[in-house]
Design a protein around this nucleic acid. Structure first.
Lengths: 246, 246
DNA sequence: TGAATAGTGTCTTTCAGACAGTATTGG
DNA sequence: CCAATACTGTCTGAAAGACACTATTCA
């Protein structure tokens, strides 16, 4: 962790200037057939940086409350949504002298997938769902959050190509058509039905629930994740035509 | 970045306790047909944590010197190897109250790939190459560095399955057999020759150099990376038999 | 019966795996 | 010639793409 010169008196930890440390969470869900992300409005106080702008939910690490970065992310998520997320993954960290006018700062970006919420459909005044258009949202974001969001969207899209992640955008029980729709929404392209079903079954991703969903058509078999805690990796991406991107 | 309660006076940034912020670099190379990682010995001073133990090269971010996390990583790398790395990627960050006895700390882990060095073959006293055995090294590492190393090895192995990363373990000019050997060393399994060559050519990974390498056998065509700056993604992993792992 | 969605079957294409075969050098 | 490594060709099999087909409900 530390080696300044061959032999030194112990580093005076009080003497060095410490950066600000924060966590930001990109919370995704699918509403009305489109990928959405939850944003919060920064306070209007002009003494704050980026007053009144939209931003990713997040904030500084609290060394008293937060045992580690991930629990800090879960705390932020709980604050904003009141929901326990079925999936949380670190995207990466961005740190530098320029990204926050107040000080050298490092932020740690996580993304979460949650099923379409009922209560938060029209979020509170300062927390609102925005559709993801391309890799962005229509509003201008505070700090470098547009870049952080872009990285999270890219990671999500990329990983959806070869994993079971979209299942976490659905409630525990879902039909195969539901699941396929989640893939199509995130990837923004249609997927061939029979190939999709073959893959899902071959991977042992789901298990049947002893129920069907009725409708004005043939009822659909309901499934749930066979192993909800572990994400499944498919051996290939969905469209081998164009290569993946990290 | 900040929302404690609906309406507050601006956050007093001096008042909150800031964590320690560091960067650690996992420097990989291939020596004698095996993957190696560079480790440094911590000072023997008993007032330091983990005195005398082996650790990943790294250290605290210097808010004066380091414009951002990546340049901090490059600085650490330069200090230890004197080499400009052809490849550097962030693995992730680990932060918590327990990982450093001195304070709540967050470290940012990068991995670098460099061609087998000539001068550093037997490193200096406090920087030595250790073979990677499985996901670990034989010595016990300081702090949580064993975990960080494990994460880096896993990321490397995983990504080698479907990218051109191993090319950065070679000098600029190499034969296809050289390249294949790098894949085999990192993945610890043989790869089928003709499939390998087909993939490499289909991806447009390399271009011919107007030279051959002679030997006690048929001379081999030399190649270089067609686009050294961008890594290439293959449409499938090398062995579809077992799925990938992140 | 028809609209709508669920689910299956079949043919093609793509590409890795296996493995045998040819090519070109030095000794 | 032989050993050694470079390189190519051919067959097979696994899984995706395309697309047509059947199944089951409600109105």
């Amino acid at each position: 962790m530390k080696q300044k010169s061959p032999v030194v008196a112990p580093f005076n930890l009080q003497a060095i200037e410490r950066p600000l440390v924060s966590v930001d969470v990109v919370i995704f869900t699918v509403l009305e057939g489109a990928l959405h992300v939850l944003l919060v409005k920064r306070p209007d106080d002009p003494r704050e940086p980026c007053p009144g702008m939209w931003a990713l939910p997040g904030g500084f690490v609290d060394v008293e409350k937060d045992a580690d970065l991930e629990s800090c992310a879960l705390r932020k998520l709980q604050q904003k949504t009141g929901v326990k997320t079925p999936y949380l993954e670190q995207v990466g960290s961005w740190g530098g002298s320029k990204r926050d006018p107040r000080a050298w700062s490092a932020t740690h970006v996580y993304f979460a997938l949650i099923p379409a919420p009922e209560s938060l459909l029209q979020g509170s005044n300062d927390a609102t769902w925005f559709p993801v258009e391309g890799q962005r949202v229509r509003v201008k974001l505070a700090f470098d959050h547009a870049m952080l969001l872009e990285a999270a969207v890219q990671r999500l899209r990329n990983k959806v190509e070869y994993t079971s992640l979209p299942a976490y955008l659905l409630p525990q029980e879902f039909t195969l058509s539901d699941l396929q729709r989640m893939y199509e929404v995130v990837l923004e392209r249609p997927i061939e039905k029979s190939a999709f079903r073959t893959r899902v079954f071959a991977a042992g991703l789901v298990e049947e629930v002893d129920k069907v969903r009725a409708g004005p058509n043939r009822p659909a078999q309901l499934y749930r994740l066979a192993h909800p805690r572990e994400i499944v990796y498919f051996p290939r991406t969905f469209s081998p035509r164009k290569s993946a991107e990290d």
